[in-house]
């Protein structure tokens, strides 16, 4: 998936544990783990807002876009 989640990095910078973030944001640790591992298919704006508020950061600090590598054989 070309969307990369940098939540681990931001959490480490803030010296915050996943458990604490999950509690502040109001989501389960399992769901936060899904988000961190990149398995999530979508993120609600309300969740993103709560995470940004809790970590005092911008959505761009957590999410990044990486264009997929071009397939072989192309010109």
């Amino acid at each position: 998936m070309p969307i990369i989640i940098n939540l681990d990095q931001v959490l480490a910078d803030r010296n915050m544990k996943s458990k604490d973030l999950a509690e502040i944001v109001g989501i389960t640790e399992a769901n936060l783990s899904i988000l961190k591992s990149g398995k999530a298919k979508a993120v609600r704006f309300s969740t993103l807002e709560a995470i940004c508020q809790a970590l005092d950061c911008q959505p761009g600090d957590i999410l990044a876009f990486s264009s997929p590598a071009p397939s072989k054989g192309g010109e």
């Binding site: 769901n31 899904i34 398995k39 999530a40 298919k41 979508a42 609600r44």
Partner: peptide, 8 residues
């Protein structure tokens, strides 16, 4: 449903 389950 899978998409909904994987929506955080």
């Amino acid at each position: 449903k899978e998409e909904n389950d994987l929506t955080v």
